[in-house]
Simulated scan of single mutants.
Amino acid sequence: MMFAVMAALLVTMLLALVRAFVGPGRYNRILAINNFGTKTVLFVAVAGFLFGRPEFLDIGILYALVNFVAVVAVLRLTHHDDPVGSQNGEDGA
Rank of each mutant, 00 (worst) to 15 (best):
F3K: 00
F3Q: 01
F3N: 00
F3E: 02
A4G: 07
A4F: 09
A4V: 08
A4Q: 13
A4C: 07
A4R: 06
A4E: 13
V5L: 13
V5I: 10
V5W: 14
V5C: 10
V5T: 07
M6C: 08
M6D: 10
M6N: 05
M6F: 10
M6Q: 09
M6G: 05
A7V: 10
A7N: 03
A7G: 08
A8P: 11
A8G: 11
A8E: 13
A8R: 11
A8K: 12
L9H: 13
L9D: 14
L9V: 10
L9P: 14
L9T: 09
L10I: 04
L10D: 02
V11L: 15
V11K: 02
T12E: 14
T12G: 02
T12C: 10
T12F: 13
M13D: 04
M13I: 10
M13E: 06
M13Q: 07
L14A: 14
L14I: 09
L14D: 05
L14M: 08
L14G: 12
L14T: 11
L15H: 09
L15T: 11
L15F: 15
A16K: 01
A16V: 01
A16L: 03
A16Q: 00
A16D: 04
A16N: 00
L17S: 04
L17P: 02
L17C: 03
L17G: 06
L17T: 04
L17D: 04
V18N: 07
V18D: 11
V18G: 09
R19Y: 04
R19C: 13
R19L: 09
R19F: 07
A20S: 03
A20W: 01
A20F: 05
A20H: 03
F21W: 05
F21H: 09
F21D: 10
F21M: 09
F21C: 08
V22Q: 01
V22Y: 03
V22F: 00
V22A: 02
V22K: 02
G23W: 04
G23Y: 03
P24C: 06
P24A: 12
P24Y: 09
P24N: 06
P24Q: 08
P24S: 11
G25C: 09
G25H: 14
G25R: 08
G25N: 15
R26A: 14
R26V: 14
R26Y: 14
R26G: 14
Y27W: 04
Y27M: 07
N28W: 11
N28R: 05
N28P: 08
N28S: 11
R29P: 15
R29M: 06
R29D: 15
R29Q: 13
R29Y: 08
I30K: 00
I30S: 05
I30M: 01
I30L: 12
I30T: 11
I30A: 08
L31R: 03
L31W: 01
L31G: 04
L31E: 05
L31V: 10
A32C: 09
A32Q: 02
A32L: 06
A32D: 07
A32N: 03
A32W: 07
A32G: 03
